[in-house]
Design a protein around this nucleic acid. Structure first.
Lengths: 132, 132
DNA sequence: CGGAATCCTTCACGATACTG
DNA sequence: CAGTATCGTGAAGGATTCCG
C-alpha cells in the first residue's frame, strides 16, 4: 500500500502552503484587538450594546462599534434593532459565530498549556542577549 | 450530586472569560502579518535566511528578520549560526513551534469549510446596506 | 441609548541603502 | 550572506464631541 512513500517526502510542506492562505484570512477576521473579547462575551447569549461596553473592560465605544460591524459583516453576529425610546440594539452570535468557539478553544487550550514555556523562552532570550 | 445546578447556569461564559486572556496573547504572538508564513515554511525542516526570503513571496528582509526574532524570542524557532565565510544561519522550529501546527490546522480547517459562508454573509451585508 | 464624526498618536510594515 | 539603520506611509486604536 505505502511501499513507495519515501522518508524524505515531507508532504506537510505543500499541504500547509495551500492551507496557509485561509489561515491568514481567518486570522485577519478574528485578529482584531477586541474581536475575541466580543465573541466570548456573546457566547453566554444576546447582549445589548451598553451591556457589552460595560462587560468588556477597557474597550471604547468606537472600537466596540467597529468590532461589531466587522463581525456582523462577516456573519458572526446578528444585530436586532428595537425602535423604542430609548432605542435598544441586541447583538447575538449566529450559528457560524458559535462554531468559531471550537478553533478558539483549541487556541486557548494551547495557550494555557504553553504559557510558561513561552515565558521561559523569553527569559532565556533576554539572558542570552545580555551575555552577548 | 448535581441537584442544585440550574438551567440558566451557562458555564461557558465564565469558562471562556478566563481562557480569553491567553487566547488574546497567542493571537498577538501569531497575529503578525508574516508569522504563519514563516512557521509554515519551517514545517518542512530547517531553512537558511536566504531560503526563507526566496520561499516566502513578498516578504522583505526586514520583516523576515523581525518575524524570526519574535518567533525566536517566544521559543517557536531556534537560530543556529555557522561562522563561516559567507556566514550561514539556519532556523528551525522548536518542539513548541511544531506543536503550534495543531491549533493552526484547526483554524485552517475552519477557514476552509466556512469561507463561502463568510463570502455570502458579506454579500448579504452589502446588499442590506444598499437597501437602507 | 446607540451610535457617527473628528482629531490625534502609535506602530506595523514597506522600500531603500549600508555593513561585517 | 545575513543582517542593521533610516525614513516614510497607512492603518489601528484611543479620546472626545455631537446627533436622532
Amino acid at each position: 500500500m505505502e511501499s513507495t512513500v519515501t522518508a524524505t517526502k515531507r508532504p506537510d510542506q505543500a499541504e500547509c502552503a495551500k492551507a496557509m492562505i485561509p489561515v491568514s484570512d481567518v486570522l485577519a477576521l478574528i485578529g482584531g484587538k477586541w474581536t475575541i473579547y466580543v465573541v466570548t462575551a456573546l457566547v453566554g447569549g444576546p447582549m445589548r450594546f451598553s451591556e457589552l461596553l460595560r462587560h468588556i473592560e477597557g474597550i471604547s465605544q468606537k472600537m466596540l462599534t467597529a468590532t461589531l460591524r466587522d463581525l456582523e459583516k462577516d456573519g458572526f453576529v446578528s444585530r436586532k434593532v428595537t425602535p423604542s425610546i430609548p432605542p435598544r440594539v441586541d447583538y447575538e452570535l449566529t450559528d457560524m459565530g458559535r462554531e468559531l468557539r471550537e478553533p478558539l478553544k483549541m487556541l486557548s487550550h494551547w495557550a494555557f498549556t504553553n504559557r510558561d514555556r513561552v515565558d521561559a523562552a523569553r527569559l532565556k532570550f533576554e539572558a542570552a542577549k545580555l551575555d552577548g
